[in-house]
Design a protein around this nucleic acid. Structure first.
Lengths: 218, 218
DNA sequence: CCTACCGATCGGTAGG
DNA sequence: CCTACCGATCGGTAGG
């Protein structure tokens, strides 16, 4: 085997080159960088550098920088709503608001643990999203917030919860879940399921729910 | 009085021009725009336009865009720590951790209600802050978080609180307060004091504090 | 406070 | 996948 002292980089064939990057990898790189530095704080040069290609090559895998942002935010927001609908679906009967709130918060928390980059971008860069996507996303977010708030109100009316101010409580409760995206890492002991369950219990504490399954205080 | 049909704008004297803008107004405009669009999403042209001057004129009132960001974030972060120290100062005796947590959370919440723009910028754009400011700010923030967490741990050990996971609880609790900056406006019914007091009570619920002053449940 | 201007970088296109 | 290149805009300076 001859030495190749002058050859710094291993050359790649055209075929290998063509396969090194795809749209999923561009999305992944954008997720990492947008989450770290924000949409406006990330240049396409940064994304290209992370993928070890030149900026124009990105356009083989995306339409525009804005389209990548839109895909991240719109899909995540739709998934949050879909998670919510699935979580509360079919819950009825006694203590239904307690069960609904636990399920809805657990689902919301779970998504933030499993998809922290997407969650950070949705919360930080939604203002960078152009119309009509921006209006659609804001509307969907408000729908989710209103649904959570309605559970709190219904539970209050039904005597399941004891809440001073549903608006204030609902905002605090939702933002509490967002915090997960800022510190949770899958490789540090707790599973996403454990974190979600714990935040769901914290939510029930916030609304003053009767804590049937908890040991009573001294 | 002669007509002046060709004169669109009222001319200002040199003296008036010189007084229209000052560093406080530049800071205020930057606060508004950075909070809305983020640091990287705001150009100095945007700031100048809001103040009805040209971009180079800004430099009579600031050193650089980065210096304005640094002033906002460093001063706010120092004020948060100072608020905390003042809030818990001298609290001792029975139920001291309950009192400390209530005071510390109320102070933190109050600042977010009173200075929402600063709070949003600190939370969103700290990653845009250059060294050595960035490291200093992160260190100060960690110190505040650790102090809050220690109250939770001490209160748990003392039997004042009942907490499953202090780390998770402290992050959720702090982020809950940050939510205030996103929705609270002084002109919509609630005073900053009322909101702060309410969030302090929510924090005590989160840590499972004994609720002496609350009516008991049925 | 302004006009005139700087080099650097931005997102994106042409063409292979 | 690349090189070469585009107009627009960026933060900032010179000089008055």
């Amino acid at each position: 085997m001859p030495e190749q002292p002058l050859q710094i980089k291993t050359p790649r064939s055209r075929a290998e080159d063509r396969e090194r990057v795809n749209s999923a990898k561009v999305l992944d790189a954008a997720l990492t960088l947008f989450a770290q530095r924000g949409y406006h704080g990330t240049s396409l040069q940064d994304v290209a550098k992370l993928l070890r290609i030149r900026t124009p090559s990105l356009y083989n895998h995306m339409d525009s920088k804005q389209a990548v942002l839109a895909a991240i935010i719109v899909e995540t927001t739709e998934a949050v709503w879909s998670d919510y609908v699935d979580a509360v679906d079919g819950i009825d009967g006694a203590d239904q608001n307690t069960k609904k709130l636990r399920a809805a918060v657990a689902a919301y928390a779970f998504r933030h643990a499993r998809h922290p980059r997407e969650a950070i971008i949705v919360n930080r860069d939604v203002s960078a999203l152009e119309e009509p996507h921006h209006a659609a996303v804001m509307s969907m977010r408000r729908k989710h917030e209103a649904a959570i708030r309605q559970i709190i109100i219904d539970g209050s009316d039904a005597g399941e919860f004891e809440v001073e101010n549903p608006l204030l409580t609902s905002f605090g409760l939702l933002e509490m879940c967002v915090s997960i995206a800022r510190w949770y890492r899958a490789d540090r002991g707790l599973t996403a399921e454990e974190v979600s369950a714990e935040y769901a219990e914290l939510a029930l504490r916030l609304v003053g729910a009767r804590q049937k399954n908890r040991r009573s205080r001294a």
